[in-house]
Nucleic acid binder design. Structure first.
Lengths: 333, 333
DNA sequence: CTGAAAGCGCTTACAG
DNA sequence: CTGAAAGCGCTTACAG
């Protein structure tokens, strides 16, 4: 049925060893022999069994990817970046999620022991950071994509959050907005503190230190962003801009401002963070700090592959630059 | 280093055969023996090597998934449905994309020959339908998730497009909208024709046959949806509703109507199709025909798994019911 | 109920 | 430059 290396060897009149050698372009093989074997391989449409190769070689040429959820707005971009890079290198990508609690985590770790993949790209592990650290200590190459700004003992890629916050501040200042409301994410996240620092630092330097009453913690959701704005307005606070720590919260803020009869951006300019696909489709379209999600995926994958193939001293971590995407929610028409 | 079945056998004082038997709960094993072996497995933290099992058994307990792109708005839901189902069954999920042309297709087909996975879930193959058909003919179990409404020779799951179109019509009619504009998708797609038929059928039955001038072909994009509305308005056409064949086009229509000074839903009600995540976040929030993307993923995965494990006569195809999600773009406040 | 042995399809020293 | 043989870690008739 299936064409095996033995078939190729027999038909080409050489040993399996020789076929293997031309397959892996390792060791010296006579030019004519190589050409002939190649021809037979081609003719038979022979492709080595990945299972057998993996078993014999002790590695699967497969990368694992663990994500908490596949339906988050920016996950598609990350995934695309990882898949493209991994495929390019001739590796496979085994996908796992850990959204069903202990159960899925257990299932996942057993896959690790099963040597189903050689290394792992993990995205923002919720409660699994300790587990990943343990796997890494036991020898599994791991690269983390972490928007939360934690800094584990193994390589990770993140966005330049502080710089992103600073850029948002500079953009608002260039529009003469001196009294911004900050709808922050959960303060336990390192990325949130970084965005806050970068933003506040620029305002302070410019002689407009943030009003502490205008820095509120929220939860990265649309509902949370809306609620924060409504609450502040209800307290009679005034502000001429909103810096939301992610786009969903910014979209919630947009709706709340509109409901309160405020015009965006005339009365209040709004800037988000992430640049998820729907940021360009809101009304008004949302100005935001772009996180290079796809590039983060590509980078993480490349770091992992470098580790697996032994080239390059991967070790280090990376923070990718962000950029402000200007749309109508800050500059009008 | 690695714990193998031989280690377990040695320490438990039994043969590898016996260990294998308790592992696979097949064949009769003495109760006490079984318990003892189980205990040793537990203690050693033994997990069978997936590669070796695959080689010996001739199957990998892995499912392949081929998608054209990971960044489409509804892809995350489909993927989540597939992954959940596949993981639940103890299978792995190998992810492939075919967005880089012939190159990635070639890479993918060689993975098929490599027996890296036992069966395939494919999403809306752009130009790869023929290739998939060939693989299927050669014996690869394939299930297609196809929103385009093609009906290949192998099992596929789709949404009930005709019924969805009819439901949209009934909803608009219940709101006394008798003169709808239809912003259709590309007419070469079966799903588009089905949505059109269902929609037009209900209107005709109700004594309000569609005005052919108000049925325009578009391209499923936001820009296309906006352009269609602008063009019709420019021609001086009047309509009291828009049925867009997907949400992106509906979002474009929303913006074009607003730009023209028309109120939604007072002057023109708008209904889309898909129910992508951002449908609930537009202003006004978009009424739309919900396609059960996650469920489509789950169903396709289940059909494939049934085929792989030999249970159930999978053969047939499935059309999953849609439902109208009513939001402000048709009913106001 | 249990085990020895062959086999899955490769790779890799080792020897020539 | 080339090949015979062992080995990767399992499963599965076959025999008892």
């Amino acid at each position: 049925m299936r064409v095996t290396i033995a078939d190729v060897a027999r038909i080409a009149g050489v040993s399996k060893t020789t076929v293997s050698r031309v397959l892996n372009t390792r060791g010296e093989v006579d030019h004519a022999t190589r050409a002939h074997v190649r021809e037979v391989i081609e003719r038979l449409g022979y492709v080595p069994s990945s299972g057998a190769v993996g078993l014999a070689r002790g590695s699967s040429r497969t990368v694992g990817m663990l994500v908490p959820s596949l339906t988050w707005p920016w996950m598609g971009e990350v995934l695309q970046g990882v898949v493209d890079t991994v495929e390019e290198a001739g590796f496979g990508l085994l996908l796992f999620t850990c959204n069903r609690g202990t159960d899925s985590v257990a299932r996942f770790t057993s896959q690790v022991s099963a040597r189903a993949f050689d290394g792992l790209v993990a995205v923002e592990p919720e409660d699994t950071l300790a587990m990943l650290a343990a796997l890494h200590r036991r020898g599994l190459p791991v690269v983390l994509i972490d928007d939360r700004g934690r800094h584990p003992e193994f390589p990770h890629v993140t966005a330049a959050n502080r710089e992103g916050g600073a850029a948002a501040a500079r953009h608002l200042l260039s529009l003469e907005r001196h009294r911004p409301l900050v709808v922050a994410g959960p303060l336990r996240f390192g990325c949130v503190r970084d965005r806050l620092d970068g933003f506040g630092g620029v305002y302070a330097e410019d002689g407009h230190p943030l009003d502490p009453a205008l820095v509120v913690e929220s939860d990265f959701t649309e509902a949370g962003g809306g609620a924060a704005v409504r609450r502040l307005l209800g307290e009679g606070r005034t502000f001429d801009a909103v810096f939301a720590h992610n786009d969903l919260a910014a979209i919630g803020a947009l709706a709340a401002l509109r409901a309160a009869g405020l015009r965006v951006p005339e009365d209040v300019a709004v800037i988000g963070f992430d640049d998820i696909p729907m940021a360009g489709l809101t009304h008004p379209a949302l100005t935001t700090v772009h996180q290079p999600m796809r590039k983060m995926g590509e980078t993480a994958a490349r770091m992992l592959l470098a580790q697996l193939t032994g080239e390059g001293l991967s070790g280090s971590s990376v923070a990718l630059p962000t950029s402000v995407v200007v749309r109508q929610s800050t500059v009008g028409f």
